[in-house]
Simulated scan of single mutants.
Amino acid sequence: MVFYAYVKQVTDNSTYRYVIVFASRAVADEWWRAVSTSSVVSFTDSIQRVSAQFYTHNVNQANAANSLTTTGVATQFLGYVFFTLMNDLGGRDLSIIPPLDHFADHISGNSFFIRSKVSPYKYWYCPQSSNAADDGVYVSQTERTRFLVSRTDSGTAGTIIIGSDQIAITLTTVDMSINVVTSTGQVIVSTAPMSGLKFSDLLNKFTTGATDQSLDMRELIYTDDGEEWELA
Score class of each variant (00 low, 15 high):
44 T>N: 03
112 F>I: 06
144 R>I: 02
39 S>Q: 07
110 N>S: 10
77 F>P: 01
128 Q>A: 09
26 A>G: 11
131 N>D: 07
138 Y>H: 11
147 F>N: 06
59 V>Q: 12
15 T>H: 06
139 V>Y: 02
40 V>L: 04
95 S>F: 15
113 F>L: 12
19 V>P: 07
141 Q>E: 07
35 V>I: 10
144 R>C: 03
71 T>E: 10
146 R>Y: 07
90 G>R: 06
14 S>N: 14
152 T>C: 11
51 S>M: 02
139 V>I: 15
48 Q>W: 00
45 D>S: 13
88 D>F: 04
93 D>E: 11
56 T>I: 03
119 S>P: 00
64 A>P: 01
110 N>W: 02
63 N>K: 06
143 E>Y: 14
111 S>Q: 13
146 R>Q: 15
74 A>D: 06
117 K>D: 03
100 L>F: 01
149 V>G: 12
37 T>W: 02
89 L>H: 05
143 E>S: 10
48 Q>K: 15
56 T>P: 01
25 R>I: 01
26 A>T: 08
21 V>M: 02
133 A>M: 02
86 M>W: 02
84 T>A: 14
111 S>R: 05
145 T>Q: 13
32 W>C: 12
71 T>N: 04
110 N>M: 07
93 D>G: 05
140 S>A: 10
25 R>F: 13
32 W>S: 09
64 A>G: 02
44 T>R: 04
41 V>R: 13
91 G>N: 04
91 G>Y: 00
49 R>E: 06
16 Y>V: 00
149 V>Y: 11
75 T>Y: 01
152 T>D: 14
123 Y>R: 06
34 A>P: 05
47 I>G: 11
82 F>G: 08
79 G>D: 14
136 G>C: 02
74 A>W: 05
62 A>K: 06
126 C>K: 12
29 D>H: 03
113 F>C: 08
55 Y>R: 00
57 H>F: 08
73 V>N: 04
28 A>I: 01
34 A>M: 01
113 F>W: 04
134 D>F: 07
58 N>P: 00
82 F>H: 14
48 Q>D: 06
103 F>R: 06
25 R>M: 08
67 S>Q: 02
99 P>D: 12
35 V>C: 11
19 V>W: 07
77 F>E: 00
145 T>F: 03
86 M>A: 12
37 T>P: 00
120 P>S: 12
110 N>A: 10
